[in-house]
Amino acid sequence: MNYKVDPGLYALGHPDADSPVFISANFKMSFDHLRTSLNDGRSGWILVLDTDGINVWCAAGKGTFGTEELAKRIESSGLAGVVKHRTVIVPQLGAPGVSAREVQKRSGFKVVYGPVRAADLPDFLDAGMKAAPGMRIKTFETGERMSLVPVEIVHAVKNLVWVLPFVILLSGFSGRGAFLSHALQFGSVSVIGLLTAIAAGCVITPMLLPWLPGRAFSLKGVWPGIVCAALFLFVRDVLWGLHPAGALETFAWVLVIPAVSAYLAMNFTGCSTFTSLSGVKKEMKWAVPAQIAAVALGAVLWVTSIFV
């Protein structure tokens, strides 16, 4: 699928030489957010930068939404001949890539940083291009967090697929009797155990993020992992009529589910809007070895529980 918009100058409504100029990225969603938020009968110019189809914030971090591209695009679009004023409104989240002073020096256009959310643009414009305090802050509300859940699940399940053949194959050796029926029964229950871990790390953790104890995401992910492990072990016997999990298998799940959940929660740092690279590196220093150790030990216990 193609989510790119052609870079260049676009007219919104019936703009003239005095209409404001808005800068956007050539990611379709960025462009559409901007258009819809100005849909209340306003006119203006939209100058779309070439960011390789990446949204404003990420592209600003990469530098593709940046001083260089903005100055060049102002020139190549002939903006100076289209409008009389010399001001462009850049989304605030583009600021990591844009030096306002440098852009003015190179293009003659003054950069005014608009609000974080395009939806606040009408109020921003009506206030004479002044941002109310709340407009400058990037939030991370429950709805914003939950919108990221589907893609997180897809990523996690893609990784899980690699483990499936081993789990099902080894499950065939559990208990005496037909290999295939064990592989299917014990195997599918075990796969559900792993899916429980994904639910803990990719759904419950993002949902409850502000209220989970701890600051490190790995730690936040451990709590839903423990609850889900307990739930899984409880439901396992009741629902599938398996013989109760022995001590080895119980320990295995108590290690693996929270560890996988912690790993997935840790990866949610990239989706969040309040983590720093220094912080993530600090967290990973202790979290990654702990996660690897727990999963490795859990795997050994699980395999052992099958063969003893």
């Binding site: 971090g61 600021a95 990591p96 890539g97 844009v98 030096s99 306002a100 002073r101 995401f217 840790m266 990866n267 740092t269 990239g270 969040s272 309040f274 983590t275 720093s276 690279l277 220094s278 912080g279 993530v280 967290e283 990973m284």
Partner: peptide, 17 residues
């Protein structure tokens, strides 16, 4: 990047594991 005096410094990165 936007401080005209260079008074602010930070090691830039994205907090993404």
């Amino acid at each position: 990047r936007n401080c005209p005096e260079g008074a602010v410094s930070v090691q830039v990165g994205v907090g993404c594991a």
